[in-house]
Every structure is written in C-alpha cells, then in structure tokens.
Amino acid sequence: MLVDQRESQRQRKNGDLPPDPYLLRIRDLIYKVAGIFQPDGRIAILEERCEERIAELGSGSLKAYYEHLTTSGDRDTELHALLNEITVGETCFFRSQPQLDALCRVALPAIARAKTQTGPREIRLWSAGCSTGEEPYTLTMVLLEEMRKTLPGWELETLATDLNQESLERAKAAVYAEPAVRNVPALFLKKYFQTRSEQFHVTDEVKSKVSLRALNLLDAAGMEEVQEADLIFCCNVLIYFDGAAKRRCLRHFSRILPPYGYLFVGPAESLFGVSEDFRLVHFAGATAYSKPSRTSGSSGLL
C-alpha cells in the first residue's frame, strides 16, 4: 500500500476525511440486502472488518471488494462472512438497555392489559435465534423481576430456539465468563447468578422458565409447531436471510404473534420494504414491530 493511501486511511479513521465512497456503498449494500445499519460511529469498525476480509481474499481495495460483494459468483457467501465479522462479539447479557426499558415499561403493560381482558394470565416470550442463551436468560430475568412488581400471580414462559446444536448445549449449561455479564446490573447479578470458580451460573429459577429447542427458522414444519407468543425477539438473525426467506419467516412470526404482541429485532436492524405484516413502532430509545391490524393511538399514552 502506498504511504499516502495509508495516510488518508488514518485521516479517515480520525474523522479528518470523509469515508471512502466505496465503504459507504458497502454500508448501503449491507443495509439494502441484510437490513442492518452501520452508523457513522461504527464506520471505522466496518472499514476494519472489510480490510480483514480484503486481506483474506486478496481483493486489494475497497472498490475491488465492493465489486466482489456485488458481482462475484460467491457474493452471498462473502456477504455472510462480512456480516459475521460485523456482528461478532456482540452477544452478552443486557445488550440493549433501551430495548429492555421498552419491554418492561411499555410493551409488557400493554400486553398485560390486552390479556387481562381476553387471555390467560401468562406472558409467553420467544427468543428466536437465541445463540448461547444470553438473550433469553436476560429477557427472562428482567421480566421475572418486573412481573413480581407489576403483575403478581402471572406466569412467564420463555421459548428459546437456535439452529446450532453447539450453541444450544452452551445455553443449556448456562455458565458464562465475566465478559458476558459485564453489563448486568448488580441487583440482577446477585439475584439471578451464582458465582463459582470465576464463572457465572444462571440460577435454576431462571433456567426453569426457559425451554431450549433446536429450530431452523426456515423450516416450515418446525415453525408451524411454535405456538402463540406475546413477544418475539429475533435479533441479528434475519440479516442473514435473503428477501424471500425473510418474508417467509415474518409470515410465521405474524401468525404466532397476537394483535397486541411485539416483534423486537436488533437495535440497528430494519424490516423496511421487507414485509407488509409488520409496522415500525418507536419507544424511547428503541424500536420494535407490531402488526398493522392494531390501532396504536400513538399520540397518547397506552
């Protein structure tokens, strides 16, 4: 690489120069194909990830790599490899506090109000693509804590599914190292974990609420077996699916969710232009999707 190229790269990373136009094209491509947005604050990370891929492929430049992602025969495989690089290391407990606030302060009370009139006194949650368990256990402990205060006598059931058996085994063990629990508030750490040999074990109380199961979200027969869930969390999973697969999966989600339910995707993930089955809703600091059949009366408080 030429010295002046290195210098411009350094200046770009420091924010002294605008990002390389091909990096912005890659960002737009990722958003268009996968639906995950890389904000300017993460653009340097995106560039690093691209550089890692470029080094592995020997593509030479961002321009050549962009062309690889758009015109080569293995462009889908390469996009998956890049997405893996972008989302790697993001799994931990309490990953998005604004999402948890939206869940407890707005979504849960709204669902409880609807179910008080029509359904059993239970909250059913599905973590679709639960990986090694951090997400379903976080949601379960947060809801247990909240429901003790605001919905005494209500039951909680969590279904957690993933395609990967190895991940599921780790989720079943429910033993985590320090980095995974770095965001866990002290109260939750004390109440819902046991520390043994510098490892953090999720308590039996939480584990007993979570059913772990292998499921491919693209397997129609398997999806048919999933019963109604008031809340679906499917974070950074749909980004790996093509448009048709996304739509198929969302049709199942739509069937599984009642009219008052919510679908939460990753904090930087968008379903824009993918499906008519869901509409974007905003909470303070978080977004989710609801079914369009519901009139939200959004100007007022729920």
């Binding site: 974007l280 809703v281 909470f283 303070a284 600091g285 009139t295 959004s298 007022g300 729920l302």
Partner: peptide
C-alpha cells in the same frame, strides 16, 4: 422523534409511537 431517541427532556416517556398513525 427527538424525544424518542434520547434528545427529549431528560426523563423517560412511557409511550409507543407509530409515526404513520400521527396526524
């Protein structure tokens, strides 16, 4: 949108907004 994205009045507004349903 500002109030929904951390540029409000410094406190949590417990609400759900569907912008497409806003007058």
């Amino acid at each position: 949108l500002c109030r929904m994205r951390g540029l409000g009045y410094g406190y949590y507004e417990s609400r759900e907004v569907d912008f497409l349903e806003e007058p």
